[in-house]
Design a protein around this nucleic acid. Structure first.
Lengths: 339, 339
DNA sequence: GGGATCGTCCGAAATGTTTTGCGTGAGCCG
DNA sequence: CGGCTCACGCAAAACATTTCGGACGATCCC
């Protein structure tokens, strides 16, 4: 026999009306009464509406776009460790092409009553995506935190790496090696990080070389090795002597594209990656890259989330982490003769 | 304003009664009518009761030991894709040192009512671990599948890569390059895959070189780069001209250890990895390695699990996948003069 | 082949459950 | 002590579910 409002009302010593109000999170119920009703609910085994289900002791969703790019497992590790350290249990959700979507996972996490969700490079980093999904989460009072991306108007903490500075660091490094024909190989521009890298690139070229129209030196492609290879190929053909890439994977593609054309890295051309993902120190050549402060960003994301979960209010300004240049062996002095 | 039964009834061209019947999975509704009502439900954005929600049905846990070794994200991707393709939703659980344990995660998944769990290199691969945890799962009738490891007595499908053959393939390759002083750098022996690699190594050395006591050529360490570096260091010191490693990460460590000693790879010494994890084709030197059939194994694991979930009974024999040698540039002919 | 019988599907209406408008009384504050 | 607000119950309204019976078609029997 299913328990009805009347039973719960009896159990809690209130009227059905009050139970109804509690169940629907309506105003006009004293905290003590609300608690009494919730207790009665549990005593009678009434199934709570998902909305006010007890957040299961510290479950936290961790949303990642994929695992191919090693920076994402790296983020996952850091964030998981931080969460576990605070007694929370991370649930990793990674999307697969044509598979489970971010919304599916969000729905799932919501149903399971997670205490919060960390979005890493999710749809919030896609400027073309509909943000109402996030507004709905905020409305429901679910703590969420965003890493690497920006969703204007969503009332939540944002943690990002400074993509513009990253590109400017790379340009600075290449300029000091006397490169002047510098290209940028990035992913689709609708992604916030890409757009920011492009902005940084334009500014860098303008400031250092007075180049006003950087467009010819920007190639948009995919984030993968193959994407980098394609984008870099076009840039090498155009006479670039150095390329700044949107990810380490793309940088590996850029190296491959260079070698296909008989160009040696770093003697003939230079390549700068982005992320400093694990293992790129072991690549051939070891990649010069711009390191995201993965550790610090992950820790900050967790701190902000736990703040929110604890009822506090983490700062709403986008926390921007400054990346740092890691010089290895994929960059070298510009060749003497312009090609 | 929220949609009401009446609205849905109008939209679907039926009576409220019928809508109610559909919503509560009551009998007495023709399939066509039921479909029409469900469609109307979605059109009007009515929130379905959990019971007949389309997707959330099949949750499947996916247990991984870590994400540092890129072979694990690779497995995760493959298995996730296969699960999603069959309408299941994977939930990734990765342990962190000192954090959430496999048992914690199992408990969590059980509570959430998953349909099954895939264990990749979990405690079942640790011969010292207590297997009762798995027996309990089997008793509860929860479908589980194990990848890369073997837990004797647990009534579940096992999918493994043939570690012994992997090592023998590596030895064969090195022997054909006229190496004779071959070492093995692996992880702790209590892990089933390690034990099997050691067995394969002993057999390989016995068959090819008549070496009966291979012990001096085996170094047990950790699975990481540093572990490989330490183990390989000892072996190089002992005069090995080639080392077979338990993982690609260890192989990178072996290369580093060689270079520390002024040895060039592959001119002076050779290194063979294991896994063929993503990106090792880009390392310096590109690693010769033994490729696990990740794709096939992941697909098989999912197939077996879905079989079990569907009430069938997947075969209980351990499915052994044969790995294949991928020759790149970390192996070369043995140096002419024995060192 | 024709009619009786049965079963399925669905709508109208009855019945049951939840939500809401409104009024009351308790407590608080000036 | 009066005015105010808030929390809550009452009862009516809104909404959902179930019952009941009619329409329709298939099947069976004569």
């Amino acid at each position: 026999m299913k328990a009805r409002l009347a039973d719960i009302a009896t159990q809690a010593g209130v009227s059905e009306a009050t139970v109804s109000r509690v169940l629907n999170s309506k105003p006009g119920v004293a905290d003590d009464t609300r608690r009494a009703v919730l207790t009665a609910l549990d005593v009678l085994g009434y199934e709570r509406p998902a909305r006010l289900r007890r957040r299961s002791a510290g479950l936290v969703g961790l949303m990642l776009p994929e695992l191919d790019n090693p920076i994402f497992p790296a983020f996952a590790q850091v964030i998981e460790r931080a969460l576990a350290h605070h007694g929370y249990t991370p649930v990793l959700c990674t999307q697969t092409p044509g598979g489970v979507t971010e919304d599916d996972y969000t729905e799932l996490l919501l149903e399971r009553g997670v205490s919060g969700i960390v979005f890493v490079s999710g749809l919030h980093s896609d400027s073309g995506a509909d943000l109402s999904r996030y507004l709905r989460l905020v409305d429901r009072g679910l703590p969420i935190v965003f890493v690497n991306g920006f969703a204007p108007g969503v009332d939540a903490p944002f943690i990002s790496s400074d993509e513009a500075v990253a590109v400017e660091l790379a340009i600075g490094h290449l300029a000091s090696l006397r490169h002047t024909a510098i290209g940028l190989a990035v992913g689709p521009e609708r992604y916030v990080p890409t757009a920011r890298k492009i902005a940084g690139f334009r500014r860098g070229l303008a400031v250092r070389f007075g180049v006003e129209d950087a467009d010819a030196w920007i190639e948009r492609s995919l984030f993968s090795v193959e994407g980098g290879q394609a984008a870099a190929g076009a840039l090498w053909e155009r006479g670039a002597t150095a390329i700044v890439c949107g990810s380490d994977l793309m940088a590996l593609g850029a190296v491959r594209a260079a070698r296909e054309r008989g160009l040696r890295v770093p003697q003939d051309v230079s390549v700068v990656g982005y992320d400093d993902s694990p293992l790129v120190a072991f690549t051939d050549p070891p990649l010069t890259t711009v390191r995201q402060a993965v550790q610090a960003m992950g820790a900050a994301a967790v701190r902000a989330l736990l703040d929110e979960i604890g009822g506090g209010r983490a700062p709403r300004t986008e926390l921007i982490y400054r990346p740092e240049l890691v010089v290895r062996a994929s960059t070298g002095p510009a060749p003497d003769i312009g090609r």
